[in-house]
Structures are given as C-alpha cells and as structure tokens.
Amino acid sequence: MKNQLLSINDLSHEDVIAILATATQLEKITTGPTKKLPTLRGRTVVNLFFEDSTRTRISFETAAKRLSADVINFSAKGSSVSKGESLKDTAQTLQAMGADAVVIRHGSSGAAQRLADSGWINATVINAGDGTHEHPTQALLDAYTISKRFPDNNRDFSSLKIAIVGDILHSRVARSNVLLLTMMGAKVTLIAPPTLLPVGVEKWPVNISYDLDAELESFDVVMMLRIQLERMSNYYFPSEREYARRYGLNETRLKRMKKNSIVMHPGPMNRGLEISAASADSARSVIIDQVGNGVVTRMAVLYLLLGGATLSEVLS
C-alpha cells in the first residue's frame, strides 16, 4: 500500500480488501465498553479543512482519537489562511509541529496531490475531498456499507447493480465511487440530466442514463447525490421542483425498488430535493449506517497508513 491516499487509484484491489477486512475487525473490537485502542499513541494527525464539513471532519477526528492519536483541527476560517497565508506556508508550519498525517479537504481539485508531491511536508497525506475530483474515504465507507448489507457477496460486487443519481458533474463522491465500485466488480449506472454529467463521461466504465424510472426495479443500491446548491451558479436544470420530480427519490419510486435493495446518500441531504424525507428515513435507507461505518473505515485507513513503521523508522 502506498504511503498516502489521494485517489482510489492509489489503492490496489488487494489494498481495498485489506482496508475493508481491517474495518470489519475494528468494528468488532470497538463496540465493547472501551472504544479506544492505544495503537497510534504519540502520532499526530492534523485535520486541515479549507472547506466546511461536518461529518468528514468529525469522522476523521473520532477515528484518530479512537486510535489514541493526537488530533489537531485546523479550519481555514479563523486561521491565518483568512489573512492570506498560502498552502505552502501552512504546510510548512504543520511540518515544523511534527504532524505524522495530514487529512486535507480543499475546494480546489488536486490540492491534496499538490501537498503530497510538493516536498513541503513529510507527513502522510490523506485526501478528504478536493474540489470536484475525489473523496476516497467516502467511497471506501460506501463500499464497506454495501459489503455489510450484502454479506453473501463476500466483498465481490460483481452481482450488484448500483445506480448513482444526481449531480455527477460536481461530485467527488461519484468519481471515487465509480473507480472503487467498478474495481470491486459492480455494474454502475450514472443517472442524471445531461447538464449534470461531466465531459468525457462516455469513456468511464459505466452505463449512462437520463431516466431514473427506466430501470429502477433492477438496482440493488441506489446512491443519491446532493444537489450542490452552492455550485449551481449556472442553470443546470429549470427548477428545483422539476429536478425533484424527475430525479428525486420519492415514496412512489421507493416502493418500486427491488426487494433487499438499499438507499444511500453521502450527506448532507437536501430533504425534499434529491431525496424525500420518507425515503431518507425508510427501512431501505442506510444513510445513518454510512456515518457510523465512516469512523471504522477511517480508523482502518489510519491504522494501515500510520500503524506500522514509518519510512524514516525503517531506515534508521
């Protein structure tokens, strides 16, 4: 396994299976009365968040704390970044403070890659979402959630049909999930209005559809994406009401879904837009499970990246 996690492309199929297996064991040992493990004692994990986030930051923070790492939370608001400090100076400050891992969320695609390749910092870099590029730990926790709901498949998704519905254009979650779920064998269909599909999507290893109703009965997993209202500066669809009618998961559509199929959403949800409140709270919904699974999946990633000897320790 590489000493960083910037993209799902950094992982081999073997690495992914190792992460999911580790998460499974971690979930078992952290459901006891003591949730904390001593494994990363003395390591420092910095959460470097240039964009707002609730669950990803809290999830990484919880994961690192459960492994006894020291956690430093850094958000751009209220820091010297708002005074105009560059990514480079911020990174060098963290380096001087002895960070072992930097979990970075940034509004620009490629920011995590830049941080890892720059030589500004020796720490392990973990991408927690960069612009519209990737969000690898979200894809891993989604795969973990799916593997838990379909235990008979034994982490082989080749019999599963998975729909990813909504704003594919702006979604880093969709990009990471397409890479990961197809690596695990799933048949992925992207469903969106043509305006919300990226250029070149026809070269991705997926099916494309503009119609949510066409094959709704055939999917084992329906993953709804958030309409990123903050990025809707152009008019991608005529109105929110029309979008909800054509691409929203409402009760009528929920009832048509296959037996044992599940509804996922990476959060935060726009209830009433891409997903109705009834669908989000239904028995098919695993949205709350996704949050809990995020902690154990991120613990597995932190353990596998930081738990062993570091390069400098091996060399010494």
Partner: peptide, 20 residues
C-alpha cells in the same frame, strides 16, 4: 486478536488484524 496492542508495531509494516 492482540495486533493493536503489540509493542513492536513500529518495527514492521502494518499487520492485518485477525479475528476477535
């Protein structure tokens, strides 16, 4: 499984966890 509690974790690459 005792992997997470070993005192030699830092001496080798990360080990897979075994069953508890």
């Amino acid at each position: 499984d005792i992997t997470m509690h070993r005192d030699d974790l830092r001496l080798r690459p990360p080990r897979p966890l075994l069953s508890t």
